[in-house]
Design a protein around this nucleic acid. Structure first.
Lengths: 192, 192
DNA sequence: TTGACATTACCGAACGACCGGTATAATTCA
DNA sequence: TGAATTATACCGGTCGTTCGGTAATGTCAA
């Protein structure tokens, strides 16, 4: 068909993702993206005719898909609750490198802060994650309202701990947040 | 002395801060900063010979000072615990506009993600906030280790809720986080 | 097999626009 | 006036983007 790509789509997206996660959308220059991927700027435009914005969009789509599979999946499928939560937690720990890497959803929020091109996707992604956590909490014995609150809290803890861990350069907040998930999602003594 | 400044230092910093909070350091152009302040670029350089970086540094310093006075202060001074916490909460709610505005410390973390020019100040600021919350938790009856953990958790909730509230365009996570502070910092039945 | 040709992947060079920053003249007030 | 402040014009550099061209691969008829 065509000359074999020197870099496959998947790896390409991964490398672009790494840049956007590190420096954000505005901070990511074509020079950086070129260097990170090994492709010249013009070559990037061959793969992504829509330019930088398309790159970020595809990276974002890929990240959301990853979340759907590796977090929402375990939280909402059938099976042992503890195992499912442990799996989601392990996946989160890996992708955030124990808290040293930031969340793409947070890094892409800045551009034109409200109404930016990524805002709808981010909103949907956050919503899906909260729903998944809430579904899990519901299944774990929480009542509806409390389950939704627990879902929001779970995601709040994760996002906040990523901010803190990066700012303090200390993995502890992220680790503590992951460990706290169990207590957050399973009703404790005295809770409904 | 000199011609009366058409805009005072305090207001100037506030307007610069607003831009950096909205679009981050890389996203803030001198054109934006000029328009937000009503000052021409050259005038900004008269006030800030160090350029954009100095503007961001002074904005950051000002924000940290604000935090020291309006959050750390109430949390660590003497007096009724509930009143002090309520005051800190009210100040937080106001500066974050009920969750619709983002945290400067988070927005200035991106530039050269690790080892950036703002990283040390951010680290110190986060540390001071955690210490203040921990001090409060300790005073509220928590034991040392638990108090420090509660301090980290309090800041984690605030930062995470800001991320969520902005991403979801929904003030609820931030409001819930503020409301949760009491339960986080005061030992609950069953806790040490 | 071979040659013609379309398709694809990639790159070098250049574009206009805007970046952060500066020099200098005009303006404004004590 | 003289000092402080602003306004204007400009600088080199980098931004995101585009274009023309080259090399590699695939198709297919001869």
């Amino acid at each position: 068909m065509a000359r074999p790509a020197s870099i496959e789509e998947e790896e390409l997206i991964a490398r672009l993702s790494s840049v956007f996660r590190d420096v954000g959308y505005e901070g990511a220059s074509l020079a950086m993206l070129s260097e990170a991927t090994g492709l010249q700027r013009a070559s990037l435009y061959h793969r992504f005719p829509g330019g930088k914005q398309q790159m970020a969009t595809e990276v974002l789509t890929s990240a959301i898909e990853w979340t759907r599979i590796n977090v929402v999946g375990p939280l909402t499928r059938e099976g042992d609750l503890s195992k499912r939560l442990a799996e989601a937690r392990a996946n989160l720990r890996e992708i955030y490198d124990s808290g040293s890497k930031s969340c793409l959803l947070n890094m892409l929020m800045a551009p034109r802060n409200l109404g930016g091109p990524f805002a709808p996707a981010i909103k949907t992604a956050f919503g899906a994650l909260i729903d998944a956590f809430a579904h899990f909490a519901r299944e774990a014995g929480h009542r509806d309202g409390a389950a939704r609150k627990a879902g929001r809290r779970a995601l709040t803890l994760i996002q906040g701990s990523l901010v803190l861990s990066r700012g303090l350069q200390d993995p502890r907040p992220f680790r503590e947040a992951l460990n706290a998930l169990e207590a957050e999602l399973f009703p404790q003594r005295g809770e409904a």
